[in-house]
Design a protein around this nucleic acid. Sequence first.
RNA 1: GGGCUUGUAGCUCAGUUGGUUAGAGCGCGUCACUGAUAAUGACGAGGUCAAUGGUUCGAAUCCAUUCAGGCCCA
Length: 967
Amino acid sequence: MTTEQSPDVPPKPVADYRASLNLPKTGFDMKANLTQREPAILARWKTENLYQQIRARQHTRGKWVLHDGPPYANGDIHMGHLINKVLKDMVVKYRTMQGHDAPYVPGWDCHGLPIESAIQKELGPKMRELSAGEIRLRCRDYAMKYVKLQSESFERLGILGQFDKPYLTLDPAYEGGVLDVLGSLLQRELVFRQRKPVHWCTFDQTALAEAELEYSNKKDTSIFVKFTMDLNSGSWPAAWGTKPQHAHVLIWTTTPWTIPANRAVAVHPEHQYAVATYEHNGPQVLILAAKRIATVMLQAGIAHYRISDSITGADLIAAGISYTHPLESSRRQPIIPAEYVTLDDGTGLVHIAPGHGTEDYQTGRKAGLDVYCPVLADGRYDQSVPEFLRGQSIWQSNEPIVQHLAAAGLLFHRQEIQHSYPHCWRCRKATILRATEQWFVRAGGNSPLLQQAKTFIEEVQWIPAWGKNRIAGMLETRPDWCISRQRSWGVPIPAFFAPNGEILLTEKSVRRVADYVRQHGADSWYTHSPQQILGADQWVDTALTAEGTTVAEHPFHTHELRKGNDILDVWFESGASHHAVLEATHPELGYPANLYLEGSDQHRGWFQASLLEAAGYRDTPPFKQILTHGFIVDSHGHKMSKSQGNDIKVSDALKQNGADVLRLWVASVDYQDDMPCSKELLERTSDAYRKIRNTIRYLLGNLYDFDLQENQTVPQEHSIDTWMLGRLAAMTAEVHKAYNQYEFHKVFRALYDFCNVDISTIYAKAIKDRLYCELPNDPRRRASQSVCAKLLLYLVELCAPILVFTADEVCRITHDVPGLKAMFGDSIHTHTFSPPPQPVAPELLAHWETLMPLVQDGLKQLDALKKASGLGNPLDSEAVITVPPDHPMAGLMTNYGRELEDVLGAGFHRIIPGDKLAVEVIDTREKYPSCARSWKRRPDVGSVAEYPDLSARDAAVVKALSQTLVN
RNA sequence: GGGCUUGUAGCUCAGUUGGUUAGAGCGCGUCACUGAUAAUGACGAGGUCAAUGGUUCGAAUCCAUUCAGGCCCA
């Protein structure tokens, strides 16, 4: 210890009383050093097998299950993972400490395109030489690598769960569970087969996913085509004037080759449509959007034309006029509504080919149109098109079609354009949209599945409440669910195809395959024969014919069957987890789960998939509560992205701050909204962490000689201890309420303010004198220590779900203090919350309500004295408290005076009668001597002759101590 | 473009059924202490409650529009 003093500081008093004080002592370091300390704690948890210990613990309350939504097993974890997993962990830890059995089984989504693409990239052209089975093996290794990597990252964040037995969607038991759900949907006749346009490469003859498209510029012929209206149908709108002899609707397209597949023309119901009339070999009458007429006429070089009044698209549809297919004069086709029609280009009337466009398809389905696709896998027209096109490649057909239209007088105008067009990422050739047979779940319109899902929504508690509205809106407009994908890495749709085109996919056959997959894994679909899989030479079952009808009791010869190549949409896989995990891979969890907790994007994703699949599997929803959180944004509220350079890497943040600080940050922001994050914000959180840590350190430091059994002392009624206990009771209630409603930012706020204001600013300051200066066993000291022990207990308990490492560290420190050993038991994480603290009598709290303003006033006066006369230390002042004799507190002020002196930090106090309850702070540097031990200036310093430099209290304490020393 | 959603001091959050000069903590600035000390305490400065318009005796709070974000679609 240094004894150096600067020359202008007066020499220290002769006697050094420091040793006679009870100064704080603790092994709990001020410096957290989380980056070093946390891994050590983590290692200990692993050796102790903490997760299993918690499972084996006596649970005073029932089971409570948070079912983990599986992150994708690809890449490092990012801030989104952090927020999600930490929120989940805080919930689980809170429920555990409430006494629930709250197991946490983490899961991973292991199948799907991103992994298959990564492997494809790795392998390059070699990919084509590999069988689906071989590709799947590599995909599996890839997925498992990232499961391990992410698993370690999650654990490093203090997330506790069954990481040694997670659920994986590539687990055969899980895959079997997925097929169980598919079987159940088949049983309820909710699965059907239908054409739908998908991106298609005619060179590779394969379907492409959105992610496999590369957009680049392409030259095309765009054409304006006149579709001849059938003026015998419907009724000519009066606003368009007298009905002409001939009229045409005018459409625009950049893909002339899709004209053969035209099945309708779409208009926007709210846009205005008019008639443009001009002369060209007689009067010409065109229908198009009023706003497009000028542009279109200019493009076609027609200078003179007349425009009629306009009507809305809705009125045009209502007029009910059909038109003639430009290449097939016998076809009459309708005009239908479509909201997506724009007036940015074209004519405001859109050529609809449901087999060759996604929007065309959707629009067509609503209007009940045939999904007609005359294009074969290699890009040639089939036999259903006009003769001049049969067998021709679509890539060579634009010109013949344009010529044909021109010859028929239907070509209004043509121009060459350059536009962004999707190309195949492998062969770089232009792709098309082509309708192919896909599997669907009947989940739109008035499907019973959808009805059931809607009733489920009502039975679930949505947090925040608007989540219900959001998902309800999504269900309202949702189409049937296309569950098939033309990929390799996933759970196969176990359909068998007979040589005559009959298909076997029934509840019975799927259940058989499910069992087979459970035994041999889904890879067996690719490596074993239909005979092996079905386990018989003949399989009698319902057959689906190529025409879409069913034939019951149809005998299939299994050796003739071919296995289908499609896999299930990965959302179907994860959406089956309510069965595949809660009942199949981890039946100890049980159905349903109490809570699903994910980002708000999962209203469309996992929540909806789960809801729909559960609706097709049973009659109760898979979750009781749904909690959603927002997304991480930067300090300006913009989304984080690598390309913007405003992203924060979890590994960096972890190195910089430690897991507990990151967890505290998660707790501190309102997750219902977007969550801003920046280095500065984490720095703030770090400050908050240090404050909490120091508060705990102060409490611990003053309990070094306290024994929970021996020294518990009830505080005197008028003591600041009582005020503190009142605050503790209020804080505890507030925090539990917030935890129960998952409002962690309120938990954080309450705990932080409690440390900052109630303990640090007010209480800790007030009790210093009695803790440090009184005899160790003095009742006032023991009472305050009793309160400190309570503060420590509740504070650490309530912090534990958030500050998992620090709480554990505190718990270990208490083990080293003999009197505190029993405080938290073996581990804070197997410990349950203490019963709420005893409430404090309201009248006692009311006393402090009236006294605290006096303290505020006193502090202002101290500040004024400091500025006016350099009074630096409040102990060099006295508080003169005036109280009217008839004031309700008058009789009590003798008790409260001493407490006020301490709360204010003054050296002395006097109570005098006055006309109002008030305090006056007086500089006593010239008035009283200072006690060398307590540093308080008071009149009784020197009153004990033996100790001329001490106040009466300190003299007595020192005397008593010296006597015990002698004995 | 559509559905849902957010916008209060530099930051994170409070602001009850619309009602006097809009609150807290942090951060910042100044000062004090040196017996919680890479701590602690005191005081202080910060806001036309995103903007505009409306309803009202009165609006951060209700309504409309706009602007700027976010998620999901198109």
